[in-house]
Design a protein around this nucleic acid. Structure first.
Lengths: 197, 197
DNA sequence: CAGCATTGTTGTCGACGCCTACATTGGCGG
DNA sequence: CCGCCAATGTAGGCGTCGACAACAATGCTG
């Protein structure tokens, strides 16, 4: 057989992750099968097992890479010199955009079934995501632009709302356009409250 | 054979849903298998197919019953005569409590893979859930206790934050105790904003 | 260049979802 | 009261999947 394909793939792990992410985007995490991935790439059905001990291990790796991309997007959207409100809006917009573009991945990232050992890395990645918001509230609080109180609580208050919008978008319970167009108003409400001043 | 079990179960559909919900709570939705449900109940492996054309159909039914319970909990927690802040707090507490007690179910309810036809019923159930919050903001706005603006946007602003907290709890990214104990403060922030007055 | 760890292959096992053909049951009309 | 039919449960089978084990090809390292 003049099969030009070499016995060793070269970087099967990366190829698996890339193909898995495409399948995830197109058909959802439930439709992800290790055997189909192997077929798509052109290796045997057991080859993925060399790189991911489990199907769950692959999902975990996918979730981790998702946090990586999200964190880069958040870092890029941070405007350290901008005033509080536009700065928070920019972060929020980056988060929502990620949710709109990677709904299945977001669902995976916040799924409640990861290996305990990977959970530590995951928690670290989540902390990194929160980091952008923590810095923002901490600095704003130092300048007196934000109410006093436990900075962690204040950060959570801001982040929970934005995360809620993101999950609603991912769950198709909220249209992406609607969320993005109402974002400015939403952040304003976050900062000024629902009660009239 | 003196098998006392009658040929017909009587209410297999309800038994399946009940058993499925227990399994869901104990082992997660991924571990839910129609065949195992049938074994637990003591019917043949194809019997569930008479009541749910699909595994997804059973998950959809589970999600619908989840919305039903959530909506009842929200209705019971509504205090129409209470002032704005404690009223909102009571609704929020009911939502978070539901999330704490039914994390897997909540994940299922907001999963993005339901049959298109069931989606209509699901959307209706979601609207019902939002209803409690909508009434609250509408009345508060009528009394001038809440900022002017599109009531739907204001409701979303309140509900998104609470939903965000709930999903964070379900995803184990936030401890239940922490969320409940900080809830009063959170609702206060929602109403008064992060900026000092 | 020899030996060994890495990586991919083949084959197998049990479980699952779904389908079809068949059995049992209970209810309804003659 | 009885026979028929729809509803419900059963038995078996098909194709796929994840996981495992035994084996083969490769390439690194001493």
């Amino acid at each position: 057989m003049s099969q030009s394909r070499p016995y060793h793939h070269g970087d099967l792990r990366a190829a698996l992750l890339a193909s898995a992410e495409r399948t995830l985007r197109e058909k959802g995490s439930a439709a992800l099968s290790l055997r189909e991935l192997a077929r798509d790439i052109g290796v045997s059905h057991a080859a993925p097992g060399r790189h991911f001990k489990d199907k769950q291990a692959l999902l975990d790796a996918l979730a981790l890479s998702g946090y990586d991309r999200l964190n880069r997007a958040l870092a890029a959207a941070d405007l350290p010199d901008a005033p509080l409100e536009p700065r928070l809006t920019s972060l929020a917009r980056a988060y929502l955009t990620f949710a709109i573009e990677n709904p299945e991945l977001l669902e995976l990232m916040f799924a409640r079934k990861h290996d305990p050992d990977i959970d530590a890395q995951l928690a670290e990645a989540v902390d990194l995501s929160m980091g952008s918001f923590v810095r923002l509230t901490a600095e704003a609080q130092r300048r007196g632009e934000i109410v006093e109180g436990d900075p962690e609580h204040l950060t959570l208050a801001a982040a929970a709302g934005i995360h809620g919008l993101a999950t609603l978008i991912a769950a198709c319970a909220l249209s992406a356009d609607e969320a993005l167009s109402g974002l400015d108003g939403y952040v304003h409400l976050l900062l000024h409250g629902l009660k009239p001043r």
